[in-house]
Amino acid sequence: MPRVVVDVVLKPEISDPQGQAVLGALGRLGHDSVRSVRQGKHFVLEVDGTPDEAELKQIAETLLANPVIEDVELHLPKD
């Protein structure tokens, strides 16, 4: 069954306190080379038949992400 992946991250101008907390923990663990962390969401959708890009784009942009605060990337299966 085709798998469609959708990645959602906060827009760059929206601060991400959860990512900053992860960055703080990395610093305490000695991983000084990590400069920043942005936390997001990763969705895997299994769909019947050939994925309909327009429909999936709509799903990603209107439900999986809130366009006021988040950017979204749609990854369709390669064939």
Binding site: L10, I14, P17, N66, V68, I69
Partner: peptide, 17 residues
């Protein structure tokens, strides 16, 4: 109401977590 588009903006995780 923000998610429904009746009001502008969004509510996110408190800055101090």
């Amino acid at each position: 109401l923000c998610e429904a588009g009746l009001l502008p903006g969004a509510l996110t995780r408190n800055s101090h977590l």
